[in-house]
């Protein structure tokens, strides 16, 4: 009986010591983790062709969003904006219809009806950079990514689509006085809201004439 108890005690001590000392992982799983490479180009292409168009169809009118931000900014940003990171920048997917007032080398000044007057916005036609489209789309969950470089590459992939597929044809055709309909992304700094210098990054443009 004495020996049995002694053995139980020894087994208990060995068991406790060994419990946390050793663990096993499949080598194949480790190899897979190390070699998997994110294909940002394919991912961005899929977003651009399959998912972003659906989101753009339901984008809020810029004028309506401005009114909502003016009356209740916290609620408006919560419902109609997004940002993958922490901070003051918020991005919204919006639709705007207006008239081309000025065509500059790097942007187009567009006048959009707002309340009883006209609101002036800048449509970017040269500098398409940053995270506005990626974040405004609300199509990315940051928890799905462990590498921030992949997120940067998605932004660059979407921006490149705008620069290469949307803008060249539009810039060739657009004329002063044209009526255009643009869907795209705008950036707001929620701590310092400024509607006088809004820049719209286009993702879809129609010249209505």
């Amino acid at each position: 009986m004495k020996r049995i108890i002694k053995y139980i005690l020894i087994l208990l001590v060995i068991g406790l010591a060994g419990y946390k000392s050793v663990y096993f992982e499949k080598l194949s799983e480790l190899k897979n983790t190390a070699t998997e490479k994110f294909d940002a180009a394919a991912y961005s292409k899929k977003l651009w062709e399959e998912q972003l168009p659906v989101k753009m169809d339901s984008a809020i009118e810029l004028s309506s969003l401005v009114k909502l931000i003016e009356s209740d900014p916290a609620d408006a940003f919560s419902k109609y904006s997004n940002a993958l990171g922490i901070g003051n920048y918020r991005y919204s997917l919006v639709k705007a219809t207006g008239t081309v007032a000025v065509i500059n080398e790097d942007d187009i000044i567009m006048q959009v009806s707002h309340a009883d007057s006209l609101m002036t916005i800048r449509l970017a036609t040269e500098y398409i950079y940053g995270n506005a489209l990626r974040d405004a789309s609300k199509l990315i969950d940051i928890k799905d990514f462990t590498n921030t470089a992949d997120l940067n590459d998605i932004s660059e992939g979407l921006n490149k689509k705008v620069r290469t597929t949307i803008l060249p044809e539009f810039k060739n055709q657009v004329k002063q006085g044209d009526k255009i309909e643009v869907t795209g992304a705008v950036e707001f700094n929620k701590e310092h809201i400024n509607f006088k210098d809004l820049e719209l990054i286009p993702a879809r443009i129609k010249i209505l004439k």
Binding site: G87, Y89, I142, K143, E191, H192
Partner: peptide, 24 residues
């Protein structure tokens, strides 16, 4: 989230009055 970015804001002459060192 394994990595969470904190936005870096561009400070230029036009908006410098909105900022102090290391923040708004």
């Amino acid at each position: 989230p394994k990595k969470i970015p904190v936005a870096v804001e561009l400070v230029i002459a036009k908006n410098v009055n909105d900022y102090i060192a290391y923040g708004k």
